[in-house]
Design a protein around this nucleic acid. Structure first.
Lengths: 230, 230
DNA sequence: ACCTCTCAGGTTGTCTGAGGAGTTGTCGTG
DNA sequence: CACGACAACTCCTCAGACAACCTGAGAGGT
């Protein structure tokens, strides 16, 4: 058997495949407990270590979760769900609105938790945004987003930082289109500089209230423009 | 050591974390070979089988690939994981904090946009939460989360709704553990009922300010408890 | 009848030792 | 220089042992 295969695949990989199939096909629905390792070893015809490694691989893929003393449980039945693709499908205004909700609160947190390093990074990002005034729309939007990302980073919550990062590609798309469509930089190549400076200053001072208020006003204005431009 | 849960994490998970870090931080760039199993076992201070399982988990996540006789090679340096997997790896407190930021703002939006149908759904969810006071901790937490999800839904932003849904599994886990650990329902089987009622009322009245304030106070209290229970 | 405690059985977690199978670089030989 | 044998490395698989842990059943008390 398997004469045609150039490489006989390791037993672990075969076990992973067989287990994954049975999970996606609903033999073990989400929430149920899998048979014990020794049982699986017998039914699959392999050693217990092999079964354990196969289960680890599935755990790494996010399909199962082991709880010592209790068993191995199915926690998902589909390989993955791409959140960035989900955002791409959504309306820009919806994405931007959520970004606003998140970032305004993040700014409040940042004003309370920022370190001297954060403040330095913020000022550097503000300067970079000014320097990008000479460049094209894409580069300017990138610098703008980098400044906002620096604020979020100053909140010191890894989940928050990663969440914002998820939004970046879609925001970038929408903002570049907006700048181009409305000619926002026609007369002033560096729009919103004063607002951003005031905002950075509020975070640096630790004034959570002002930081949230200024940022919300700025983002709401852009959101209105996005709604109008649709 | 406090990898992010309320229980001690297994050695395998710790090994996975340490290896993942070093990969994402560029110590072993894409394409390079990792040290051998025995070497890793010595440097990580664990047994060989533990290292093997950790490597399997990373392989399942798509970060490395093993070739018999040759070694284990890095094939990607960024997680490429879906968002729920990311949340599962994060600290409960970090996840909860972001949830708080998002939901407080969502509540403000909901107070402005809620329809009569939304209000009816909110009242139904509140009743369901009261009815669940008789049930076990898991059922009660489910009812509680369902109420909060109903509020987010009333904001009428599909991205926001889906985002909250991503948080649910991790929140559920953490909250059930918290309720159990602190015995929150020991004397009162329906804790926080008055606060939730006031909150639903504020949204129904369209009082965005009150809705945000009440919810923030409630969530902050729980967050403090989570931080203390760690 | 209800509650609490104990305990036994089953489960995953971890380590060790032993071989098998495959790859790769070295080294001697022509 | 070309080539084949080979040794040293790698991962792969199994078996066994013990520890840590969870769960449910049953004993015992209230």
């Amino acid at each position: 058997m398997a004469l045609g295969a150039l490489h006989r695949s390791p037993l672990v990989d075969q076990a992973v495949e067989r287990l994954r199939e049975q999970i996606t096909e609903g033999r073990w629905p989400v929430g149920t407990r899998l048979p014990g390792e020794t049982t699986l070893a017998k039914t699959l015809g392999v050693g217990r270590s092999t079964v354990r490694e196969a289960l680890r691989a599935l755990a790494g893929a996010g399909l199962v979760q082991a709880r010592q003393g209790a068993g191995v449980f199915v926690i998902a039945d589909k390989p993955a769900e791409d959140w960035t693709a989900r955002l791409r499908r959504a309306a820009v205004t919806d994405v931007y609105e959520v970004r606003m909700l998140v970032e305004v609160q993040a700014a409040r947190l940042a004003a309370r938790r920022r370190t001297p390093d954060d403040v330095a990074a913020l000022h550097a990002a503000l300067e970079a945004r000014r320097a990008a005034a000479r460049d094209g729309d894409a580069a300017f939007v990138d610098a703008d987003i980098a400044l906002h990302a620096a604020v979020v980073a100053a909140a010191h919550n890894p989940v928050l930082t990663d969440l914002f990062a998820e939004f970046v590609p879609r925001l970038r798309e929408g903002l570049i289109a907006l700048v181009d469509l409305l000619g926002l930089r026609a007369d002033d190549p560096n729009p919103g500089d004063d607002v951003h400076a005031a905002f950075v200053d509020a975070v640096a001072r630790g004034d959570a209230e002002a930081a949230g208020r200024v940022l919300q006003a700025e983002l709401e204005q852009t959101l209105d423009r996005l709604r109008g431009a649709r």
